[in-house]
């Protein structure tokens, strides 16, 4: 029974995301709110299931990463809406983004990750879990920047929201990297090592820095500003699901 439960959770969350997107597309804010809440609750059940079954927080892998990222993105969307109001473009892109994340995992093994003796270590847990948390923040920011590109009336509002989320995501991401460095130091004696993982992690940090250091002649172009704001979110999702 238990091996099938991740698959049931995955399809329930995907179903909610489809309904949420339909409600957002039909401009039904109340119904959208109901499906968003249901999605958050289903994801929460998934996160609790992971924590109870394996005695640790979600770390990586198609099931654990997708459910956790989608859960945090749901919470962030709910908070953003509460404070900043219903933003049509953001809501559409956010729901679409969530659905794409989930559908890209379709066909991959929906199961808990195999256990490893290092998963009892605090720094290992912080490194992997905070990386997923950062992915959720940066993906949420990507939908705000995407909304900022197409929305005309609430353009500055979404750009400001995107900037806030990007900086918060950077803090979470750097904390994850710091914990990862400590893990590396305790495991190999070096605070960092030359590897594919290191290069990809550095690219993500540099992409975040690029968004914060756009020269004025580029920053004036809202489209380039929006695209550069989206890149860290897209890159970290690629890094997590296709590393």
């Amino acid at each position: 029974m238990i091996p099938d439960l991740p698959l049931v959770i995955y399809w329930l969350v995907t179903g909610m995301a489809v309904l949420e997107l339909l409600a957002a597309g039909a401009h039904l804010p109340n119904l959208y709110g109901v499906f968003l809440t249901l999605r958050i609750c289903t994801c929460l059940a998934g996160v609790v299931f992971i924590a109870v079954c394996v005695g640790r927080p979600p770390l990586f892998g198609p099931f654990e990463a997708a459910i956790y990222i989608v859960f945090v993105m749901g919470v962030l969307a709910r908070v953003f809406q509460k404070n900043w109001g219903y933003q049509t473009a953001f809501v559409l892109f956010n729901s679409l983004g969530v659905l794409i994340i989930l559908l890209l995992q379709q066909g991959k093994p929906m199961a808990l990750n195999e256990d490893y003796f290092m998963y009892g270590n605090l720094w290992v847990n912080l490194f992997f879990n905070l990386r997923l948390l950062a992915a959720a923040f940066l993906a949420h920011g990507a939908s705000q920047y995407l909304g900022h590109m197409v929305e005309k009336e609430q353009r500055d509002l979404l750009s400001t929201g995107g900037r806030n989320t990007l900086l918060a995501g950077a803090c979470v991401y750097l904390t994850s990297e710091w914990a990862g460095s400590l893990w590396c130091l305790n495991w190999f004696g070096d605070s960092w090592q030359w590897s594919r993982g290191f290069f990809k992690a550095s690219i993500l940090f540099l992409l975040i820095m690029v968004v914060c250091h756009l020269p004025s002649f580029i920053n004036r172009n809202k489209r380039i500003q929006g695209i550069s704001g989206m890149l860290p979110g897209l890159f970290i999702l690629w890094m997590i699901f296709y590393h």
């Binding site: 594919r196 290069f199 540099l206 820095m209 020269p215």
Partner: peptide
């Protein structure tokens, strides 16, 4: 110390890190 130099340096570093992914493979 200009932001333009920061921007171009960051872009070049991203390409170099990307090349690192290729070389390490």
């Amino acid at each position: 110390g200009s932001v333009t130099l920061t921007f171009y340096t960051l872009v070049v570093l991203i390409w170099l890190m990307g090349a690192g992914v290729f070389f390490s493979t």
